[in-house]
């Protein structure tokens, strides 16, 4: 085998080594306290505003093409009058063993050194493979190029690309805010502090249910909360190793349905 092929093979092999992904600069993690969340959906609008999500209209919504990177799922149990309602905000879980990453034929989705599962829009060719592989149904596809009527386009966030037809997208943990916090930290010649970064959903949450921080920093709020006995992760048995940690809702009958 020629030398350059060997080099490539060696590199590809190193990606498969266990622990390759644990050598990260940061491990951004979100902790969501379901006992605080009251389902108000302020986070959903915050996400639309921050990430230039288009509004697709009723007909497209009917075809399940709405763009919400972040949605509030609501589950109803029981019958009148013993009705129990539960909320859970679901966004990209930034899995450390993400199924979507294994599927993309053009490497448009991959894991970066911050522990984020990222999507490169200009590389994406829209094969839809990642969305099919995704366990959490959080990937959204641009079926069309959506345009805002003037002057609504003045609101668009210049830190985030406006995506076009044929591109897959999803929650980025507000990577532009991470970048800007790192930028500020660099200017001030210090490392990024806990609390410097608040994704749009976390910032807007009226009840303060969404926490964000670096899991590799043992002093961070998320690292402490992650030790909570209420901790669990969504569909953990699928072993995708998600970076979003939920804290169980405290609720009446206490049937932890999944034990």
């Amino acid at each position: 085998m020629p030398g350059f092929l060997e080099r490539i093979a060696g590199k590809l092999k190193s990606y498969r080594e266990p622990g390759y992904y644990t050598k990260l600069d940061h491990k951004w993690t979100m902790v969501i306290d379901l006992d605080k969340c009251n389902g108000c959906e302020a986070c959903v609008v915050a996400c639309y505003a921050e990430n230039n999500l288009p509004v697709v209209g009723k007909e497209q919504c009917e075809k399940s093409r709405a763009f919400s990177w972040l949605r509030i799922e609501r589950y109803v149990e029981g019958e009148y009058p013993d009705v129990k309602v539960k909320f859970i905000p679901v966004m990209c879980q930034h899995c450390m063993k993400a199924p979507c990453e294994t599927g993309c034929p053009v490497y448009a989705t991959y894991h970066n050194q911050d522990g984020l599962n990222v999507q490169v829009y200009n590389r994406c060719v829209g094969t839809f493979t990642c969305a099919t592989y995704c366990t959490y149904d959080v990937r959204r596809f641009n079926w069309f190029t959506y345009k805002w009527p003037k002057p609504l386009e003045a609101q668009l966030n210049p830190d985030v690309s406006v995506r076009e037809m044929g591109v897959m997208e999803k929650c980025t943990f507000c990577i532009q805010r991470i970048r800007s916090a790192k930028d500020t930290a660099k200017d001030e010649a210090r490392p990024v502090k806990d609390g410097d970064i608040k994704p749009a959903c976390s910032q807007s949450c009226p009840t303060g249910a969404i926490y964000f921080g670096d899991m590799q920093d043992p002093e961070s709020v998320v690292a402490k909360l992650a030790k909570s006995p209420r901790r669990y992760r969504l569909l953990e048995e699928l072993n995708a190793d998600p970076s979003v940690i939920y804290l169980k809702r405290v609720m009446g009958d206490g049937t932890s349905s999944h034990e």
């Binding site: 919504c61 919400s68 609501r74 589950y75 030790k227 569909l235 405290v250 049937t255």
Partner: peptide
């Protein structure tokens, strides 16, 4: 037009809960 699929968890344990008494027993998180 509604965005939901099912209103049921179908045993998938999506929103997990603990009872108030169980919660009291748990150590209070910081």
């Amino acid at each position: 037009v509604k965005m939901e699929g099912s209103t049921k968890e179908l045993g998938r344990g999506i929103v997990q809960t603990v009872s108030p008494s169980e919660f009291k027993r748990m150590k209070k998180e910081v």
